[in-house]
Design a protein around this nucleic acid. Structure first.
Length: 851
RNA sequence: GGGCGCGUAGCUCAGUGGGAGAGCGCUCGCUUCACACGCGAGAGGUCGCAGGUUCGAAACCCGCCGCGCCCA
């Protein structure tokens, strides 16, 4: 036993993380049988941001659970992943190196980025070169992240680390995609697609968010073919040239005469049908709306259900495209005017075109009244700056809609923590309106392992995609060549061309269980860890990460990817707002850990219940630090120069205390099994402070007694109880727990066995009078509190002698008190203890003379 | 508009049918032989509002109000 003179928390992080690394304390032993494995589908943090307090918060939750299961004797599969795939990295690389990805540029193995990067005139480089730069940049980020996680004390096995852009992730993503394609679960289609005009890529429904934006409602006059006006209201007059129909509600009598007829668009003279549809909102505006291809998602619905033609005007860059007026589909009652009007709009951005067409409509008299300002929700790509448009393009989709019911059932089989989070998943699945668009017109992602043959004219034959051979994965079709073709045939008539797109970042991260478990690469390992025990994640990505992982697992494995979903909340500013970027950057996690210590920060994090948003609170970290210091000092008191222990417990108070521990252990265990680490911590902490303030004070006399029959049993009680507290606190305060454990035990506390409630219970009832002894502990502590109160009110020190203490109470409680009387007298410096039977308990304290 | 969550002491929160609680903060006191990064004590609440179920409601049901998140 080696107990330091002045124990301290300083330096414990670096000391113990080095030891854990050296000893492989958290190594996953793959020889363990499947039923003993506990596997975690760790969320891979995006390396292109910075880690913030929210990460520290939620990763601590998972770590506490992981440590608990490890102490239960399970082999914990706890990998870390880095999400370096996707747009955020791409943007950083462009700015950092002054480059731009152009998939048509050939790979240059000797390429070096410009010495003086220019954001204005970036160098065009091949996709493989671009990916190399992404990897170069993310590598240093990943080292910094790992250092933070080690300081925080995450018990991950660092040999299992993966990245979402690494070869393994690419191989598994491409293999999965080719499988989906072969089974018809993935398909390609030219269709209206959600489109970001700045990034110039398709995006998925799950990546949209609503933002309130000011707009204006314009009343615009169309002329009915049979004579008279048809007045519509729109916030997007620039789409009048893309108008394909006018619609009224079927029950709207105001427009009944128009329905079934035709109307002419203003300025362009295009003939459009007037139809009816129940989705039209009668009480909005005039009750008459125009359908354009495409102004919003409702337009797509109307277009599809009413089999309307396409009259696209928006180019992928968000400007109005050239339009062939006079050709089929672009007929006009007044071609000259249509061409002249459109000439004013062509080439302009959406906003410019809107301003110009309003002027034109005013001049022609077709704009009625002043545009009315309105605030409305506009859909944005969550990373974008301009509203989403809908543009027809060729994209890859994964079938989703037809699996809705199956997905809902899967969600019901999953155990959610907390349970109400399932509703978010189910709402999302129920609200899905289309299959999952997985192709992105970006560069730093996993490419589709697909080429297309070119016909004699050099046109791609999309109906006959050429998939990469399984043993050649991963491929980059922009530089690799499909089987049966020569490199020179790229782009040549009769040759081949690459699919230019990459997969949606979620299309890769939806496979994290397979990537971490190495599906198809190390199948024996995969079968050991899949389906995983738990997916920990935050609630904001239930509709994306959680949903898509369930979908992919259903499609590829035919089962749920995990048994449990542990959903964490967010960290909020003290003013209850979502933690802002600026604030999160000021309070960097490393600074927090340095200021308060890792155990203290973990304590704060672990007190946030599953699923519950928690306010950032440095006061809680100070409380955590106090707890860690208390564990140091209580351990020092109990263990330093601890006399030899007896074989058995002998004192009623000792046995009763051990009985309380038995209850605590069972309680903490039950909470942990239900992923409620916060409750486990709260209970443990509560009992630990009670133990320090009452039990330790009561037994001091016996602990220092000279007689072996006195100190032997109490020495045993102290060993048992300290050992239990050190282990119960280990999942939360891994550093200080390991420190105090090392004073007197072999091996790591984090590989020690979780205490057995039944064993403690058995030790506690040896005397056979456990109920009376429990009462003894309770009554003794209560009377001691009365003594302290009297001293406190008399403003005397706690060691001030009590000349006489009179306790009045029931027979039973007095009988119990007799069992603790010796300890009470010593702890309260009580010279004379008298008792008297009474129905109403009371205590009289006569303090000794002062001085 | 729909769904979910929340509303308990100044603050952060625990408490799912029978005593209104913890920590922090505040006030007062104590060099106490593990710990002044400590110890002891005290003050502080019509449990959002209104109704209902019940012998009994902070808890269960209904409605309303307020806050937050997700979705439309």
């Amino acid at each position: 036993m080696r107990v330091p003179e002045r124990p301290t928390l300083e330096g414990l992080e670096s000391k113990w993380s080095a030891v854990w690394d050296r000893d492989g304390t958290y190594s996953f032993d793959r020889s363990a049988p499947r039923e003993r494995v506990f596997s975690i589908d760790t969320p891979p943090p995006t390396v292109s941001g910075s880690l913030h307090v929210g990460h520290v918060f939620s990763y601590t939750h998972t770590d506490a659970v992981a440590r608990y299961h490890r102490m239960q004797g399970r082999e914990v599969f706890y990998p870390m992943g880095w999400d370096d795939n996707g747009l955020p990295t791409e943007r950083r690389v462009q700015n950092h190196f002054g480059v731009r990805c152009d998939p048509s540029v050939p790979y240059d193995p000797t390429f070096e980025p410009p010495a003086e990067p220019s954001e204005k005139e970036p160098v065009a480089i091949s996709r493989p070169n671009f990916v190399e730069l992404c990897l170069r940049l993310t590598e240093s980020d990943e080292r910094a992240f790992e250092a933070l996680w080690r300081t925080l004390g995450l018990s991950v096995d660092w040999t299992l680390t993966y990245t979402t852009i690494g070869p393994r992730a690419q191989r598994i993503s491409q293999r999965s995609f080719l499988g989906l394609l072969a089974r018809g679960a993935a398909y390609q289609l030219e269709a209206p697609t959600l489109w970001d005009v700045d990034f110039q890529t398709a995006v998925a429904q799950a990546e949209l968010e609503d933002r309130e934006r000011p707009g204006a409602m314009h009343q615009v006059r169309f002329s009915a073919k049979g004579g008279g006006d048809a007045v519509i209201e729109t916030t997007r007059p620039e789409l009048i040239p893309a108008c394909v129909a006018l619609l009224a509600h079927p029950d709207d009598e105001r427009h009944a005469a128009l329905v079934g007829g035709e109307a002419l668009t203003p300025l362009f003279g295009t003939t459009v049908p007037v139809l009816s549809h129940p989705l039209v909102e009668r009480d909005k505006g005039t009750g008459l709306v125009m359908v354009c291809t495409f102004g919003d998602l409702t337009d797509v619905t109307w277009w599809r259900e009413l089999s309307l033609p396409v009259r696209p005007v928006l180019a992928p860059d968000g400007r109005l495209a050239e339009v062939p007026w006079g050709s089929p589909g672009w007929e006009s009652a007044d071609l000259e005017r249509a061409r002249a009007s459109y000439g004013e709009l062509s080439g302009r951005s959406i906003n410019q075109a809107r301003r110009r067409i309003v002027e034109l409509l005013e001049e022609s008299g077709d704009l009625l009244g002043e545009p009315q300002p309105v605030n409305r929700a506009v859909k944005f790509y969550e990373k974008g700056d301009r509203p989403i448009e809908i543009i027809t393009s060729r994209q890859w989709f994964i079938r989703t809609i037809e699996h809705k019911q199956e997905l809902i059932e899967a969600g019901r089989k999953l155990r959610w923590h907390p349970p109400y989070m399932r509703a978010r998943y189910e709402d999302w699945v129920n609200g899905l309106t289309g299959d999952w668009c997985v192709s992105r017109q970006r560069f730093f992602g996993v490419p589709f392992p697909i080429w297309y043959p070119l016909d004699a004219e050099g046109n791609a034959i999309y109906a006959n995609p050429i998939g990469a051979a399984a043993d050649e994965l991963p491929v980059d079709p922009s530089t690799d060549v499909p089987d049966g073709y020569a490199p020179e045939q790229r782009g040549q008539p009769g040759g081949f061309t690459a699919d230019p797109d990459v997969m949606d970042t979620w299309a890769t991260s939806s496979l994290t269980p397979q990537i971490a478990g190495q599906a198809g690469e190390d199948q024996a390992l995969f079968e050991k860890v899949f389906p995983m025990d738990v997916r920990p994640q935050a609630h904001d990505i239930i509709r994306t990460w959680l949903f898509t992982t369930v979908l992919r697992s259903q499609l590829d494995e035919g089962e749920l990817p995990w048994a449990n979903a542990a959903i964490s909340g967010w960290v909020l500013d003290p003013d209850r707002k979502k933690m802002s970027k600026s604030k999160g950057n000021v309070v960097t996690p490393m600074h927090l850990l340095e200021e308060h210590g890792a155990d203290a920060v973990r304590y704060w994090a672990a007190s946030g219940r599953p699923g519950t948003d928690t306010a950032f609170d440095s006061k809680q970290m100070k409380v955590g630090r106090k707890l860690a210091v208390k564990l140091l000092n209580a351990s020092k008191f109990a263990l330093a120069d601890l006399p030899p222990q007896a074989e058995e417990l002998a004192h009623p108070l000792d046995r009763a205390m051990i009985g309380r521990l038995a209850t605590l252990v069972a309680d903490a265990e039950e909470s942990f099994e239900d992923y409620d680490y916060a409750r486990a911590l709260q209970r443990t902490e509560e009992v630990f402070w009670w133990y320090c303030d009452n039990y330790l004070e009561l037994v001091k006399g016996r602990r220092y007694d000279a007689a072996p029959e006195i100190y032997g049993p109490v020495s045993r009680a102290l060993r048992i109880s300290l050992s239990v507290f050190q282990r119960l606190l280990a999942p939360f305060l891994p550093f200080v727990s390991e420190e105090v454990w090392s004073w007197w035990q072999q091996g790591s506390v984090h590989r020690a066995a979780w205490p057995l409630a039944a064993e403690l219970r058995a030790a506690a009832v040896v005397g056979g009078q456990s109920e009376l002894e429990e009462l003894a502990l309770e009554v003794t502590a209560e009377v001691l509190a009365e003594v302290r109160k009297a001293k406190s009110q008399a403003q005397r020190p706690m060691r001030a002698p009590v000349a006489r203490l009179l306790v009045r109470d029931t027979q039973e409680r007095l009988q119990a008190l007799a069992l603790g009387a010796g300890d009470l007298r010593q702890a309260g410096s009580i010279e004379r203890l008298e008792t008297e039977h009474a129905e109403e308990p009371s205590v009289e304290v006569e303090l000794g003379e002062q001085g």
